[in-house]
């Protein structure tokens, strides 16, 4: 099913609400839906988290294997992020090889974690140039009601912060907690009906003209960005999006009490 086919009548209804400074579910423009984070629900994973953001439900699992480092970073662990948008999560998701949407999701979440230096990859070296830990962040969407990037980003950092490197299973020393030293939080600002808002639900996201994801670190510095959608943003809108992302990431940090 094509998300473009949301009827114009719905588009019109949402735009009209937005102009009256209202949202379909009664929230304020800067207000997130209820957020819940379940830590390590799946024992088979080295770390996992299940995040519910309203009716959006996503799991991130951390798995690790021993592998070879990249030749240009012989003393550094390897990070890989993949997203699966399962057909059971939405009629918009189809079976088959990963589409641009899931690749983008994985890469945006990955970029925030990688660029903020959240994981101390140099501590994941076993034998320089030969053996390092290869870490997989697997994003698994269970139920989709909009704003998957933020939900997946929160789940990823929560799973990482609670992951254990199972060194003893591989006979390379004692188990140790995955060294995580930053909490990058992606916040996506959606432009809907010409207005900027946070945490779009599915209908809002579907009719949104554009979105801008801004990943900030604990200091509020910018670590990753990604614009999506076809409409342009003015420089002024980008500046307002920055302010909103700053507020949003602070709110989420407070909710998670990560710091």
């Amino acid at each position: 099913m094509d998300r473009e086919l949301i009827p114009d009548i719905e588009r019109g209804y949402i735009s009209r609400l937005i102009r009256e400074r209202k949202r379909t579910d009664g929230r304020g423009f800067e207000e997130f839906r209820p957020l819940s984070v379940e830590i390590n629900p799946y024992g088979s994973a080295e770390g996992s988290a299940r995040v519910k953001l309203g009716n959006t439900d996503v799991i991130v699992g951390i798995k690790m294997i021993i592998g070879e480092p990249y030749s240009d970073r012989p003393a550094s662990g390897v990070l890989t992020t993949v997203a699966e948008l399962r057909p059971g999560a939405s009629e918009f998701f189809e079976q088959g090889p990963p589409k641009a949407e899931s690749i983008e999701l994985a890469r945006v979440v990955d970029r925030g974690i990688r660029e903020s230096g959240a994981i101390e990859l140099d501590k994941l070296c076993i034998v320089e140039g030969e053996k390092v830990w290869v870490l997989f962040i697997d994003i698994h969407a269970l139920d989709f009601d909009g704003n998957l990037i933020d939900a997946a980003g929160i789940a990823a950092i929560a799973a990482l912060k609670n992951a254990t490197v199972r060194a003893s299973d591989h006979e390379v020393g004692d188990d140790f907690p995955l060294p995580v030293v930053e909490s990058p939080i992606p916040v996506t600002v959606y432009k809907v009906g010409g207005e900027l808002l946070l945490d779009a639900n599915l209908v809002e996201e579907t009719v949104a003209e554009a979105r801008l994801t801004i990943t900030m670190d604990e200091k509020g510095d910018i670590r990753a960005m990604q614009k999506g959608g076809t409409a342009n943003l003015t420089v002024e809108e980008v500046q307002r999006a920055m302010d909103l992302a700053q507020k949003g990431s602070n709110n989420i940090r407070d909710l998670l009490a990560m710091d």
Binding site: R111, R114, E115, S116, L212, D217, G220, D221, I222, R223, A224, M225, Q226, K227, N232, L233, T234, V235, V238, M242
Partner: peptide
């Protein structure tokens, strides 16, 4: 012509 932004990505470390 308008100064509007149609594509934006970023990685690394910027202050505001």
């Amino acid at each position: 012509m308008t100064g509007e932004i149609s594509l934006m990505q970023m990685d690394g470390h910027f202050t505001r």
